[in-house]
């Protein structure tokens, strides 16, 4: 049909226009990191660099002691990986508990947890800082890792997923004499791998990108993760375009690479998390 083709054509035009807007900031960032600052100042608007240089990366990563980007990067990596591991362990245990174990008040506790998700997180910011301070965790990675493991939504996802697994599996294993823990490790964990992958990906990116909380609990420049670190970097390089952009680009590389390899999971998880509602 001619009409259908017009619709297709118009939407393609629209998508092309929008993708231009979306891709320009990315290309601009990548290309500028290979320009020398002198080239930018004298010849600000050539699209490609006149001289390709990698000096910006050397400077930003290793030469600036007041904005130690390489160090921030490692701090972030340690924090995000640890937090992800902790969350996956805690969430799979709890998901198993709320969907497979029988105990008094189970459903009441779960409904209560779900209800607390409606609570705006901003209210706990100030007392949480005090708790972290009391524990001596200011400027310590634990200040991010541990409070990051309190989320309820991940448990909801895992529990939801587990309920899709027929109970007969566990029951027959139990008849064969397996204990709860054996069933959990040998039977349930392998089956819930897809949903745990989703939980892990989201935990890692959320942890890597967290901004307000780490900027409160870290004031030692050396110990900071990279996301709040970039705010210092911005102040330092406010007139130095190439270096500032290089710092920003370095900071987005891990989540970008993660996305390239696990696109499918990101896409599925989003429809999963919205589909279960409503």
């Amino acid at each position: 049909m001619a009409k259908k083709r017009t619709v297709k054509f118009v939407s393609l035009l629209f998508l092309l226009l929008m993708s231009f807007i979306w891709i320009v900031p990315l290309l601009y960032t990548i290309i500028t990191t290979f320009k020398s600052e002198a080239d930018i100042q004298s010849n600000a608007f050539t699209i490609l660099p006149i001289h390709w240089v990698i000096g910006n990366y050397q400077d930003v990563l290793f030469d600036n002691t007041s904005a130690p980007v390489a160090k921030w990067f490692m701090n972030s990596l340690i924090i995000s990986v640890s937090q992800t591991l902790l969350v996956v362990v805690i969430v799979s245990l709890a998901g198993y508990g709320y969907s497979r174990m029988k105990f008094k008040g189970r459903d009441a506790i779960f409904v209560f947890l779900m209800a607390t998700m409606m609570f705006p997180a901003v209210v706990n910011l100030i007392p949480l800082y005090k708790i972290i301070d009391t524990l001596g965790w200011v400027n310590n990675n634990l200040a991010m890792i541990v409070p990051g493991a309190t989320g309820v939504f991940n448990i909801f996802l895992v529990r939801q997923f587990m309920q899709g697994i027929p109970k007969e599996f566990d029951e027959s294993a139990r008849v064969d004499g397996a204990s709860d823990f054996q069933i959990f490790i040998k039977l349930v964990l392998p089956m819930i791998r897809p949903v745990l992958t989703v939980v892990a990906l989201f935990t890692f990116t959320a942890s890597w990108n967290d901004f307000l909380w780490p900027s409160i609990v870290f004031n030692d420049v050396e110990k900071m993760p990279i996301t709040p670190g970039l705010q210092l970097l911005q102040g330092m390089y406010s007139l130095d375009i190439a270096h500032a952009l290089t710092g920003a680009l370095v900071a987005i590389i891990p989540t970008f690479i993660l996305y390239l390899f696990t696109q499918k999971y990101f896409m599925e998880s989003l429809s999963l998390s919205s589909g279960v509602k409503g």
């Binding site: 900031p25 601009y28 960032t29 990116t205 890597w208 990108n209 901004f211 990279i226 996301t227 709040p228 670190g229 970039l230 705010q231 970097l233 911005q234 500032a244 952009l245 710092g247 920003a248 680009l249 900071a251 987005i252 989540t255 970008f256 993660l258 996305y259």
Partner: peptide, 12 residues
């Protein structure tokens, strides 16, 4: 997937 601070540097 990018952090607010990285994106804000780019746009500034």
């Amino acid at each position: 997937l990018f952090s607010v601070s990285a994106v804000m540097i780019v746009f500034s």
